[in-house]
């Protein structure tokens, strides 16, 4: 064990830490000071941040609210509840890449089923991924779909951990349906809901695959979020603006830390812990 502790363990840690070094100027040729940061104060980067915020909002909230509704309904002691729960968890089997490709096929403007179904009820074709005002919600919708299964799994586990006596006592007091949900289940689920808000926000800020596959940041940068912008600057089309991209990466890191801190600070107080 001494060997394990002093050889394997530092070795693992070295690997670990070696992957975490953050050299701001990837391949530094000249010292540019804060140029990358002052450049960010121009309007373009503000739009990237706004897009990121909007994307986070439209992909996080519906997925949590939707999963909560589903899980509360599943609590109604139905027959076949296990099958239903598995069915709602199925999207979790999709990776970001496979789900995005399926949505790319569905959203296809000419032969996609989304426009096909709309057309069948007499609605005009929608340019899901090429209309600047629709592309972001469309990618957000695909993301909601990807995350719903995970949220259902987490909330179901939370519901399963609620002591049955508590629910039984409330039922004996005459609480049913809506009152049972708002008075007992949702407050007791608050640790899981809190966890989901934090994790989903962090996850949404890091979203990349669906944007790369569905829109490549377009149309007209309408879906260029912070992480996509980092990718574009550093890696896309032979661009290797590692400096500028790294400056944006530092902003990402800062936003992430602030989000975590704010969420812990504000939400923690309102969360019921058993």
């Amino acid at each position: 064990m001494v060997f394990a502790l002093f050889i394997f363990w530092p070795l693992a840690r070295t690997f670990y830490l070696s992957t975490h070094g953050n050299d701001i100027f990837g391949a530094p040729s000249t010292y540019v000071g804060l140029d990358h940061y002052t450049e960010m104060l121009s309007g373009e980067f503000g739009e990237v941040l706004a897009t990121t915020a909007l994307f986070t909002l439209v992909s996080v909230l519906p997925a949590i609210v939707g999963a909560l509704v589903v899980v509360l309904l599943l609590e109604a002691r139905l027959r076949g509840v296990r099958v239903l729960r598995t069915a709602f968890a199925l999207p979790f089997a999709f990776s970001v890449a496979t789900a995005s490709v399926v949505f790319a096929v569905i959203y296809n403007p000419a032969i996609g089923i989304a426009n096909g179904l709309l057309g069948a009820v007499g609605i005009d074709r929608v340019d899901w991924l090429t209309d600047p005002s629709i592309a972001l919600p469309a990618v957000g919708l695909a993301t909601v779909w990807m995350n719903l299964g995970y949220n259902v799994l987490v909330l179901s586990a939370g519901v399963a951990a609620i002591p049955p006596e508590v629910v039984e006592a409330a039922r004996l007091d005459g609480a049913t349906g809506w009152r049972l949900a708002t008075g007992i289940t949702i407050p007791l689920l608050s640790p899981q809901l809190f966890f989901l808000v934090v994790v989903s926000t962090i996850h949404a800020l890091q979203s990349f695959g669906q944007i790369h596959i569905l829109t490549k940041g377009g149309p007209d940068d309408a879906t260029t979020t912070l992480v996509y912008s980092i990718y574009e600057r550093a890696f896309a089309f032979g661009s290797s603006d590692f400096g500028g991209a790294s400056a944006q990466a530092v902003v990402l890191l800062a936003i992430m830390l602030i989000c975590t801190a704010v969420q812990f600070g504000i939400l923690e107080r309102r969360v019921h812990y058993r």
Binding site: Y16, S18, G21, N22, Q206, S246, A249, L252
Partner: peptide, 17 residues
């Protein structure tokens, strides 16, 4: 603390290495 560091924020130095 390393859990709070998003991979995307350190992907560039990793890639270069």
């Amino acid at each position: 603390a390393t859990l709070m560091v998003p991979w995307e924020a350190i992907i560039i130095p990793n890639y270069l290495a």
